[in-house]
Computed example of a mutant assay.
Amino acid sequence: MRFNQFVLVTASVLALAACGGKERPKTDLAASQVTTIGVNSYLWRASLDALSFMPLLQTDSAGGVIVTDWYVNPNSPGERMKLTVSILDQDLRADALRVAASREVNQNGQWVAAPTRAATVQKLEGIILTKARDLRRSAIAD
């Protein structure tokens, strides 16, 4: 009886060893859902990259919030912008990103709230989404 058990165990070990020579399929490191920082890392990195020219007040990678300080464009010294970017999901999707903008204009030395064009926010969201998709494509290619 012991000999039969030995043969069975040896056959099982050899069968498992034969499976070890195959290469495992690569894990998709660029999956649309990346949760190491609480939100989609491609959207997070793309947002930080897109806002790199502005001073940052707050960044919360767990909550997915980036708040900038007021930024004055040297070409338009009479106006300034402040942005809040919120990443709402762990998936890389357009509806997982929300950008809110505040704009002020200088009138007689006082900063006064002014309307922000919707196209400005939409353009920034488009830039961030394009950068995030490019980051994902690069990760897949590697």
Rank of each mutant, 00 (worst) to 15 (best):
W111N: 02
Q90V: 15
V72H: 06
D134V: 14
T116F: 07
F3E: 14
I87S: 01
L135R: 02
T27I: 15
S32W: 08
L92Y: 03
K26C: 09
V7Q: 02
T120R: 06
A141F: 13
A118G: 03
R24Q: 08
G20E: 09
V7G: 03
L97G: 00
L92Q: 00
D134H: 06
V112C: 08
A17V: 08
K26F: 12
G21P: 04
Q90G: 05
Q110K: 11
F3R: 08
E79C: 14
Q110L: 09
Y42G: 00
V121H: 01
T84V: 14
Q33R: 06
S138D: 13
T116V: 13
N4C: 12
N108Q: 13
V72C: 08
L83C: 04
G109S: 09
V105S: 06
S12W: 13
N75E: 15
R80M: 05
T59V: 04
T59S: 04
A15G: 08
S47K: 02
G21R: 09
P77S: 12
I37W: 03
A101N: 01
T27L: 14
D69V: 06
S12G: 10
T27H: 07
Y71N: 06
S47W: 00
E104T: 08
K26L: 07
D49F: 09
D95M: 07
P74S: 11
I66R: 01
K82M: 13
I127Y: 00
V112A: 12
T84K: 03
S61Q: 10
D95N: 04
V121N: 03
D142V: 15
V105Q: 05
V99F: 01
K123H: 10
N4P: 02
G109I: 06
E79L: 13
A113F: 10
A118E: 05
I66D: 00
C19G: 06
G109V: 13
R117M: 13
G109A: 10
V7C: 07
Q122D: 11
D49W: 02
L48H: 02
Q33M: 09
L14Y: 04
K26N: 03
G63V: 11
G109Q: 09
P115W: 08
I128Y: 00
A118F: 13
R45M: 14
A101S: 05
N40D: 08
L51W: 01
N108L: 10
E104V: 04
R2K: 15
R103N: 10
G126N: 11
R137K: 07
I87A: 00
